[in-house]
C-alpha cells in the first residue's frame, strides 16, 4: 500500500508516495499553472508511474499547500506549516527549526522534541524574500533563475540592495546595472537581502540549530551561503528540498491510515 502527499504550491505541484516503512517510492514536481486541481492529478499520475503503481494502490491522500482546497480527491487537508515540519523531521530527526522559502511565501517553523511544529512565522503578504522575488530579479538581470547561484558564488564583494519590495527592488537592480556594478555582486546583494528577510522571520520564533532548509529556493547555493552566514549555522539541505511539504503530507497520510485501522 502507498500513501500520497500532494503539495499544491504557487509555482509547482509536488507529489510524494511513501510505503508503509515511510520510504519514498516515487515523486514528481510539475508546474502548477492555472488549474491546480488538474496539476494535482497530473503530478500524482507521474509519481505513480515512477513508482510503477496505480491509483488503487493508494491508501490515503493528504493535500497541502495554498491550493490544498482544490484537491477534491484528497482524504483530508493539512497546512504546509505542519507538513514541512513533518517532512523535515522524517529526514532529519534532530532538526529544531525549518526554514521554507517557496515561490510565494516564506516561513520559519520551530519544532518540539517530537518534531512537531510548535511555533511559526510567515511572510505571506508580499513577495519580498521569496522565490518570486528572485524570479523577478533574474528577469531584470537577463538570467535564468538557476544561473543566479553560480554568479553569486563568484562575487568577491556585495552590492547592497536596500528595497525589499520586489517591484522597487527590480527598479533598483536596473539602476545598479546602469551604474556599471558587476552583475555577480548585485546577485550576491539580492541573496543577502533574502537572507536578511529570512533571519527576521527566524528570530521571531527563536530559531535553534540544527536548521533544515526546504522549498525551491533551497536549491540556490547563493541563498544558502548568505543564510548560513546570517543564521550563523550550517543548514541541513534535503536531497530534493522542493518535495518536503509533500513528503510530510504523505507521512501524515500513512499515520491517518494506521489510526483508522486501529
Amino acid at each position: 500500500m502507498l500513501y500520497a502527499g500532494i503539495d499544491v504550491g504557487s509555482l509547482s505541484t509536488d507529489v510524494v508516495l511513501v510505503d508503509s516503512d515511510l520510504q519514498i517510492k516515487g515523486y514528481s514536481i510539475i508546474p502548477t499553472g492555472a488549474d491546480s486541481k488538474k496539476a494535482a492529478g497530473e503530478s500524482l499520475d507521474e509519481a505513480l508511474s515512477q513508482a510503477g503503481a496505480s491509483q488503487e494502490d493508494i491508501g490515503e491522500i493528504i493535500a497541502t499547500g495554498y491550493g490544498r482546497i482544490s484537491v477534491s480527491f484528497a482524504s483530508d487537508r493539512v497546512t504546509e506549516i505542519t507538513c514541512h515540519a513533518r517532512g523535515a523531521n522524517r529526514l532529519f530527526p534532530q532538526a529544531k527549526t525549518v526554514i521554507d522559502i517557496g515561490g510565494q511565501d516564506s516561513k520559519a517553523i520551530r519544532l518540539n522534541r517530537r518534531g512537531r511544529a510548535v511555533d511559526f512565522a510567515m511572510n505571506d503578504k508580499c513577495a519580498a524574500g521569496t522565490g518570486r522575488f528572485l524570479e523577478v530579479m533574474a528577469r531584470a538581470l537577463e538570467l535564468d533563475l538557476e544561473e543566479l547561484a553560480g554568479h553569486s558564488l563568484k562575487a568577491e564583494k556585495t552590492v547592497p540592495i536596500s528595497n525589499m519590495c520586489a517591484v522597487f527592488a527590480e527598479s533598483e537592480v536596473v539602476s545598479l546595472i546602469a551604474e556599471g556594478n558587476p552583475r555577480e555582486e548585485i546577485i550576491k546583494g539580492l541573496h543577502v537581502s533574502v537572507a536578511e528577510r529570512t533571519l527576521s522571520l527566524a528570530r521571531r520564533i527563536g530559531y535553534q540549530s540544527p536548521v533544515v532548509m526546504t522549498g525551491g529556493v533551497a536549491k540556490n547555493a547563493g541563498v544558502i551561503r548568505a543564510l548560513e552566514e546570517k543564521l550563523e549555522t550550517e543548514l541541513l539541505i534535503p536531497e530534493e528540498p522542493q518535495i518536503i511539504g509533500a513528503l510530510g503530507a504523505a507521512v501524515i497520510a500513512f499515520e491517518r491510515a494506521q489510526k483508522e485501522v486501529s
Binding site: V78, T79, E80, I81, T82, N112, R116, A117, V118, F120
Partner: peptide
C-alpha cells in the same frame, strides 16, 4: 493557512 496552522500546532500539543 496562518489560522489553520495555528490550530494544528495546538492540536499537536505544544512544546512537549
Amino acid at each position: 493557512t496562518r489560522v489553520e496552522a495555528f490550530l494544528e500546532t495546538l492540536e499537536e500539543g505544544g512544546e512537549e
